[in-house]
Lab assay of single mutants.
Amino acid sequence: ILQTYRAIANYEKTSGSEMALSTGDVVEVVEKSESGWWFCQMKAKRGWIPASFLEPLDSPDETEDP
């Protein structure tokens, strides 16, 4: 089962193997590399994304803190 994550910042791809993101995009993580790059898919797009640009979809938003 794939894990679902949300983009927390815009990411512009710098090579053909990467995938561009916009803040709020929801992606499915296909593979996690120890290098800190994750292979993700979103609709018909697939590519590598730095893991630091993603957060788990089920994590609470910062605005929901008590």
Score class of each variant (00 low, 15 high):
1 I>A: 07
1 I>D: 12
1 I>L: 08
1 I>C: 10
1 I>G: 09
1 I>S: 08
1 I>F: 11
2 L>N: 15
2 L>P: 09
2 L>D: 15
3 Q>V: 11
3 Q>T: 15
3 Q>S: 15
3 Q>L: 08
3 Q>E: 15
4 T>N: 13
4 T>W: 06
4 T>Y: 13
4 T>L: 12
4 T>F: 14
5 Y>A: 11
5 Y>T: 02
5 Y>L: 02
5 Y>D: 02
6 R>F: 03
6 R>V: 09
6 R>T: 05
6 R>Y: 04
6 R>D: 01
6 R>M: 06
6 R>P: 00
6 R>I: 09
6 R>Q: 07
7 A>C: 09
7 A>G: 04
7 A>M: 05
8 I>L: 08
8 I>Q: 04
8 I>H: 05
8 I>S: 05
9 A>Q: 07
9 A>M: 11
10 N>H: 06
10 N>F: 04
11 Y>D: 01
11 Y>T: 05
11 Y>N: 03
11 Y>M: 07
11 Y>Q: 05
11 Y>P: 01
12 E>P: 10
12 E>M: 07
13 K>H: 07
13 K>M: 09
13 K>Y: 05
13 K>L: 06
14 T>N: 11
14 T>I: 10
14 T>S: 11
14 T>L: 09
14 T>A: 09
15 S>T: 12
15 S>Q: 12
15 S>V: 07
15 S>D: 12
15 S>F: 07
16 G>R: 10
16 G>H: 14
17 S>H: 06
17 S>W: 09
18 E>S: 07
18 E>K: 05
18 E>M: 05
18 E>C: 06
19 M>H: 02
19 M>S: 00
19 M>E: 01
19 M>N: 00
20 A>H: 06
23 T>I: 15
23 T>N: 08
23 T>G: 05
24 G>L: 01
25 D>Y: 01
25 D>L: 00
25 D>E: 06
25 D>I: 00
26 V>D: 02
26 V>Q: 08
26 V>R: 08
27 V>W: 00
28 E>K: 08
28 E>P: 01
28 E>H: 09
28 E>Y: 06
28 E>Q: 09
28 E>M: 03
28 E>V: 06
29 V>N: 01
29 V>G: 01
29 V>D: 01
29 V>L: 08
30 V>E: 04
30 V>T: 10
31 E>L: 07
31 E>W: 07
31 E>T: 10
32 K>W: 02
32 K>V: 04
32 K>F: 05
33 S>H: 13
33 S>L: 12
33 S>N: 13
33 S>P: 04
33 S>V: 05
34 E>I: 08
34 E>S: 11
34 E>Q: 09
34 E>L: 06
35 S>R: 08
35 S>A: 08
35 S>E: 04
35 S>Q: 07
35 S>D: 13
36 G>W: 03
36 G>N: 06
36 G>Q: 04
36 G>L: 02
36 G>R: 03
36 G>T: 03
37 W>I: 07
37 W>P: 03
37 W>L: 13
37 W>H: 05
37 W>D: 03
37 W>M: 15
37 W>K: 08
38 W>I: 03
38 W>H: 03
38 W>P: 00
38 W>M: 10
38 W>N: 02
39 F>N: 05
39 F>Q: 04
39 F>C: 06
39 F>E: 03
39 F>L: 15
39 F>D: 03
40 C>K: 00
41 Q>F: 04
41 Q>K: 11
41 Q>G: 03
41 Q>V: 07
41 Q>H: 06
43 K>F: 06
43 K>D: 15
43 K>H: 11
43 K>Q: 12
43 K>V: 07
44 A>E: 15
44 A>H: 14
44 A>I: 04
45 K>F: 05
45 K>A: 12
46 R>N: 10
46 R>A: 10
46 R>H: 10
47 G>T: 01
48 W>V: 02
48 W>K: 02
48 W>H: 02
48 W>I: 03
48 W>L: 05
48 W>Y: 07
48 W>G: 00
49 I>V: 15
49 I>P: 00
50 P>S: 01
50 P>V: 00
51 A>M: 12
51 A>H: 09
51 A>D: 05
51 A>S: 14
52 S>I: 09
52 S>Q: 11
52 S>L: 06
53 F>D: 01
53 F>G: 04
53 F>A: 11
54 L>C: 01
54 L>S: 00
54 L>E: 00
54 L>V: 06
54 L>F: 03
54 L>A: 02
55 E>A: 11
55 E>Y: 04
55 E>D: 04
55 E>C: 08
56 P>G: 05
56 P>W: 03
56 P>N: 04
56 P>V: 07
56 P>D: 04
56 P>Y: 05
56 P>I: 07
57 L>T: 15
57 L>I: 15
57 L>R: 06
57 L>S: 10
58 D>I: 09
58 D>S: 13
58 D>K: 14
58 D>M: 09
58 D>G: 13
59 S>Q: 13
59 S>Y: 11
59 S>C: 13
59 S>E: 14
59 S>P: 13
60 P>C: 12
60 P>H: 14
61 D>F: 11
61 D>Y: 10
61 D>G: 13
61 D>A: 13
61 D>R: 12
61 D>K: 13
61 D>T: 14
61 D>S: 14
62 E>N: 13
62 E>T: 13
62 E>P: 12
62 E>Y: 10
62 E>V: 12
62 E>F: 10
63 T>A: 11
63 T>N: 13
63 T>F: 12
63 T>C: 13
64 E>P: 12
65 D>L: 11
65 D>Q: 13
65 D>I: 13
66 P>Q: 05
66 P>V: 07
66 P>H: 08
66 P>E: 07
